[in-house]
Design a protein around this nucleic acid. Structure first.
Ligand code: SF4
Ligand code: SF4
Lengths: 135, 135
DNA sequence: TTAAATAAGACTTAAATGGTCGGACATAAC
DNA sequence: GTTATGTCCGACCATTTAAGTCTTATTTAA
């Protein structure tokens, strides 16, 4: 429990790589996968997620690849996490918008409020850490 | 990802219940399970874990049950979490003792150090929150 | 002796994660 | 225009982990 998914780890690695290789040529998914010895297909998919969320910009075709869409100090870790992770939440009842419909215990559950508070603190922590800080 | 396990949630519920029902009779696993409408066998096992870790004291036989071993303000959430959860860690490489042998990427991984720091902050947050605070 | 409780471990099922595959699309270079 | 090299995207499979169940043994008040 409380484990960060590989997706998130790989997303950190990929964005760190992009931040450190901003030359003329755009780094490719293959290049990143080789560099970190992680599965190519997976990194590719993660970069697509990051692109959808405007964290990176993708270039298709020959000489294609990726680059960061903002400066590393303008990208917070929570953006990266939320881009790749569908289940970023401490408990079932903490979907965005405070949807509590997916837990039958919600009526008699006393622990939700304190957990919401803890979730908020964790969020803030990731929010306040920028990509630049982990380069 | 970053999800708290049901085990941990149930452990919070159980300890909260014990903290709120400290009469002459010891609350039983069945009683707690019924009260929160959660699986009896599961709560029982969790209480056993808590007992092993000296967070609760168990009494066997008829009129048996459980009670807290300390005052609610002396029990921190991290104690409860660690009692029931074997995999409390942000990444594979963060087992107690800093064992990095289970990740082949550890040599070239740049994200470990910052993640260790984040893990530390999360730990502190749970450490600093006592059971009393979530009653 | 019996009933009501915990203790413990094996087992099954369900869900989430991690990883793969195949085909479509885009584009620079020849 | 053809080709090589890249992204895009959904469906799929495999593995692991979490969640829950079952069974038997043990303890103890009445
Ligand atoms: S049991 Fe409580 S904290 Fe857990 S998911 Fe349900 S409402 Fe949320
Ligand atoms: S990739 Fe890095 S952070 Fe993730 S488990 Fe391996 S060493 Fe730890």
């Amino acid at each position: 429990m409380l484990k960060l998914s590989k997706k998130a780890e790989y997303a950190f690695m990929a964005t760190i790589y992009l931040a450190s290789h901003s030359g003329n040529e755009y780094p490719t998914a293959k290049e990143i996968a080789d560099n970190y010895k992680i599965p190519f297909q997976l990194v590719a998919k993660i970069l697509q997620n990051l692109a959808k969320n405007n964290i990176v910009i993708s270039f298709q075709g020959v000489k294609g690849g990726y680059k960061l869409n903002k400066n590393p100090d303008e990208i917070s870790l929570i953006d990266i996490i939320k881009a790749v992770e569908t289940n970023y939440k401490l408990t079932e009842c903490m979907l965005e918008g405070g949807d509590t419909s997916n837990c039958t215990l919600v009526d008699c559950c006393k622990i939700r409020d304190p957990l919401v508070e803890i979730q908020r603190k964790i969020d803030i922590m990731f929010q306040e850490t920028s990509l630049k800080q982990i380069l």
